[in-house]
Amino acid sequence: MTDLLNILISESFWAASLRIATPLIFGVLGALLCERAGVLNLGIEGIFVVGAMCGWMAVWLGAGLWGGVLVAACAGAIFGLLHAILTVPLGLSQHVSGLGITLFATSASYFTYRTALPNVSSPPRIEPFQALDIPVLSDLPFLGPVLFQQTALTWLALLMVLLVWYVLQRTGLGVAIKAVGDNPDSVDAQGLSVYGLRMGAIVAGSALMALGGAFLTMSAFDAFFFGMVNGRGWVCIALVIFAGWQPGKALFGAVLFGAFDALQVRLQTEMGALVPGQIFLMAPYILSIIALVIAARSVDYPRALLTPWFKGQR
């Protein structure tokens, strides 16, 4: 018991939690933006892969770290645009289109990687983002190591939480995005473009998702591996529902999830002799399902989620 307490009050534990949460923060925000506009984006898992691969490859080709971030975001936006075209003006099944985008994005990334690097056994490494060691602040007790030794991408993720919250809650654009996910007819009646708002939200959301992938290859690790995304995208889809489509709660959910994940790694090393390690590996996915079950009935879904809308048809 005291062991558990010691873990929970340690700085390194919370630093790890925030680090593990970072890609999820990007992913949940991205999915939240799409769903607030009324479109489920199951392309997320594949867009993570694209972000991870493109960001890494851009840096490997010499674009610089921030160049890589930009390339990843653009690549995510392109696949988001494809999903947007299929689901908004064409009004096709959001489930099937999303899964199609995931399969397409994943296979395109893998094919590109294999074609560029045909015969490598150990993937080439890049120099990843380093911890932003801010003088004075980094020396603060507890907060210092937890917050001020994260990489720039974690800071970008936190900034994006603020930005998405601000846009959704404080701007006219946010009101329009939320309205288009609740009642597109009312948006159309006001002379705004339902297609434009929905597609814009999907493209922006997909760019955010890709940044989550980029974090994996450019900050958490320093190379690209097949299967490295490993269901993180699907976890984000569950977390959005858990967060009730609120950016603040999304941050909370992602960090909570990161904390559980960091805890299972530590418990695994402490109790590894007693319990098979796989029990701990399963825990994050089981937690996501539990979170979904708890939240599913109590939350307000965007009312037009999954419902296509055609101009001139009531």
Binding site: N230, G231, W234, I237, P276, L281, M282, I286, A296, R297
Partner: peptide, 22 residues
């Protein structure tokens, strides 16, 4: 519970694969 089966079945794929390894 109204839990979306898309998400639960997707997550179960990962859980079951880890279970198989175990």
């Amino acid at each position: 519970f109204g839990a979306d089966e898309v998400v639960t079945t997707l997550l179960l794929n990962f859980i079951i694969l880890i279970f198989v390894q175990m």
